[in-house]
């Protein structure tokens, strides 16, 4: 079961339309082994040190439950962090790597003599291709062109990464505080 505080973050991503990121996180969480769940005697008690609740008694099993719950939430949050940041990093690297591959292909074949060589400077994805008859040539989304489209995409990735990190850090603090 996903902790409600982590779930709130995922619901925010989903509401914004970043469905693939939510799926990436869900895959990581569902793949967590039972061993990933902290044993009762390995709950990180440091997370409770700053609490004002002086009456808490770590000796009884009932009192350990919030600690265990918090530890599980923190592990889920770490897994979510890793999945989101990994996904965004790969997409950012792809935007940067494709123009490099195109340039290398052009430069490596620049001296082919009478032949045309490799001319491609950008790669586009056709919007309608379920049927060849539907190709209309319009509305193509550019990938791989280091132009305005790529700069905007890179900027969107960086902004989302920063926003996630901030929201994740706030969630971590909330878990630590027992909120």
């Amino acid at each position: 079961m996903i902790d409600r505080r982590v779930g709130l973050l995922l619901e925010t991503l989903r509401a914004g339309g970043a469905v693939a990121l939510v799926e990436a996180v869900a895959n990581r969480l569902s793949a967590m082994e039972p061993d990933d769940r902290p044993a009762d005697d390995m709950v990180d008690r440091d997370i409770d040190e700053d609490r004002d609740d002086a009456g808490i008694d770590d000796g009884g099993p009932d009192d350990q439950y919030p600690l265990l719950e918090a530890a599980i939430a923190l592990r889920q949050l770490s897994a979510a962090d890793a999945a989101v940041l990994s996904y965004l990093r790969i997409e950012k690297d792809l935007i940067e790597a494709i123009p490099i591959e195109l340039r290398n292909l052009r430069e490596a074949q620049a001296g082919r003599g009478g032949e045309s060589g490799f001319l491609v400077k950008e790669v586009t994805i056709l919007p309608h291709d379920d049927d060849v008859s539907e190709y209309d040539g319009g509305g193509e989304r550019i990938v791989g062109e280091r132009g305005i489209a790529d700069e905007e995409a890179l900027s969107a990735i960086v902004d989302l990464r920063e926003a996630w990190q901030m929201a994740s850090e706030r969630t971590r603090m909330a878990i630590d505080d027992g909120r």
């Binding site: 925010t12 914004g16 339309g17 989302l160 926003a163 996630w164 706030r170």
Partner: peptide, 16 residues
């Protein structure tokens, strides 16, 4: 923080 995340996710989904 969640509102900022929502805004960034929307921009991401719009651009990509």
């Amino acid at each position: 923080a969640r509102r900022a995340l929502l805004k960034a996710a929307r921009a991401f989904a719009t651009k990509m």
